[in-house]
Design a binder for these strands. Structure first.
Lengths: 330, 330
DNA sequence: AGTTTTTATGGAATCGATTCCACATTTAGC
DNA sequence: GCTAAATGTGGAATCGATTCCATAAAAACT
């Protein structure tokens, strides 16, 4: 491993001068600069960021914690962040909690120990322990997707998105609407979206049947099973609409309906949230809500950078609205 | 920011002793250890990995370069790696080249400058420049998906996978088979898979029509357009099978066929490669090849760890075979 | 009791960069 | 021609950890 000392010797200058060339700082004569540059090129020397950031206290690395690697949502989110960060010379240290709450806390610590310049957390469930940990962090921080008190947030307006989608279902004449949600441990998806549905139904004086309210786990398969259970429980009475809080569950539900001989949307309408890639190509194409995760990622990155570079410590919260995408499933 | 020095002072011991407690090394009396542990817990002190690895020359970070964030393939691959790495206390610094070859080289340098302990590259196109750069790296390295000479590789047997899939099509009585591939700049997907198709067709003395050989760009939409062009060019003659080198393009092709009134698989069979999530739920369910990217990720991680920890410098190449998944599209 | 071994502790060097400061040499200003 | 400012260079301290080495006290052997 080549070091600055060796480069200095080879170029016949001091480490200080090499450092100046490297960082374009201070005074360096053309003559000396040329010699240094030449040696660097010949040797392929790459300075150790390690040593540099030990001294400068800046790593130019942002820690990001996402729930699961390789999901569309996380992918888009991280892409959005990356766009902004790379523009400013920052890199992302990506960690995935794999949906284990304990890992989130662990990774937060780990990221701090790696001296990242800031952290973005895309959480699913927020425990008190997690909140405590976050507050102990005392470093630039932004939460995405879930509202965490006392810190900067980029969140989606889940309540109104859900309400709007339910409204669309009703507008199209659907009255007996089933609901496929997720556990309430997830505040945004589990509670907010459910509340949006309930409020809208109540507003129109529509009956919410408990036996038509299923809970699934985000997967396509779970949507399939939830739908089958609802239809079986229906016993004669069949819903004329289903609102699924995620696209993948909606896909599963549609799949079941098709197999069971129900026509979508003629007999029964299906709606999702997320505008996943698959939703466009499935038949019938799913009516859904685009959450524009890239934008969320960009916003989160911007806020974090403001905290880092201008050391603004605001607890700014940005709320993003979903964009309704009407297709063929309603 | 708390440092080891401050902890030492607060506990009334030397930095050396604190370090020993931290790393469970050397001799420390119970009495001293207790005092140190107490101070650490009270203060929430987290040692700087930065400083540690400057000294130890080990960062416990692995650099990973993938072509695109948020794709299923990359997601699975990275998940597989992560499984292995996290078991041994390593973390992944993930970078995405966003399909720009220049960025691959740039990130390789960047990762080296961050002193990662090793690098895994999942490349799509391999230029001479890239190969030169890799050889200059002189650090633990594994390439995934593309065969790069002179280094360790984990590759898929694209040629035989493609041959097998084409064979299945033929076995089912298909004779007039169209082909949707990708540009040849991608050695594995563009060339190997195409050759597998060609060799199998030739073996059975089947005609390969140039006008039925389309080139698309991995996307669903491009598959759709490629298929439409083939059908249009067919002018009367319609193929009875299409082999698409990726699932997403196969989905696009099927979509077009459906819209154009061709029945899959009755009139025309469709085959893909990749076992993507969507392929299972699309109708008809796509017959495809599972490349088991998680396994590839695990293997790559294992090989890299062997290089790092046992400093084995072998140019081991592991070839993974695809697993045929027969569903309804053939 | 005297010697060796084990246990315990801290001082100081080290990793590879940056940066403050001192000093030397030019160049500019009057 | 003399002082002041600009330019150029390197020595040495520093960042926060680990680790070699020296030293001392306690425990274990003759």
């Amino acid at each position: 491993m080549l070091t600055i000392k060796e480069i200095a010797e080879m170029a016949g200058v001091s480490r200080t001068t090499v450092s100046r060339v490297l960082n374009d700082s201070g005074y360096v004569s053309d003559e000396a600069r040329k010699r240094v540059v030449k040696v660097i090129e010949e040797t392929g020397y790459i300075p150790s960021q390690q040593a540099k950031s030990l001294r400068t206290k800046k790593t130019k690395v942002i820690g990001v914690v996402i729930p699961k690697l390789g999901t569309e949502t996380s992918g888009r989110l991280v892409n959005g962040m990356n766009e902004v960060f790379s523009k400013y010379g920052y890199q992302i240290l990506l960690t995935s909690s794999n949906l284990e709450p304990q890992k989130e806390i662990e990774y937060l610590r780990l990221l701090k120990s790696r001296q990242v310049d800031g952290i973005i957390l895309s959480a699913t469930t927020i425990s008190d322990e997690l909140i405590t940990e976050i507050h102990q962090l005392k470093m630039p921080f932004v939460a995405v997707g879930q509202n965490i008190p006392g810190v900067a947030n980029v969140i989606y307006d889940d309540f109104n998105a859900s309400k709007a989608m339910t409204g669309l279902l009703i507008e199209r004449g659907r009255k007996n609407i089933a609901f496929i949600g997720v556990p309430e441990s997830d505040q945004a998806v589990g509670i907010e979206r459910k509340q949006g549905f309930i409020k809208q139904m109540e507003k129109h004086n529509l009956l919410i049947r408990p036996e038509w309210m299923a809970i699934a786990d985000f997967s396509i398969t779970s949507g399939y099973h939830a739908m089958s259970k609802i239809i079986e429980n229906a016993a004669g009475w069949v819903p004329d609409g289903v609102f699924c809080v995620t696209d993948r569950m909606a896909i599963g539900a549609m799949q079941y309906l098709k197999e069971a001989g129900h026509r979508v949307p003629d007999d029964i309408s299906v709606a999702g949230i997320g505008a996943s890639d698959i939703s466009k190509y499935f038949q019938p194409a799913l009516t859904t809500m685009d959450y524009e995760n890239e934008v969320a990622g960009q916003e989160a990155a911007q806020i974090l950078l403001a905290q880092i570079e201008k050391s603004e410590n605001f607890q700014k919260t940005i709320t993003l609205n979903g964009r309704l995408i009407e297709r063929d499933s309603i």
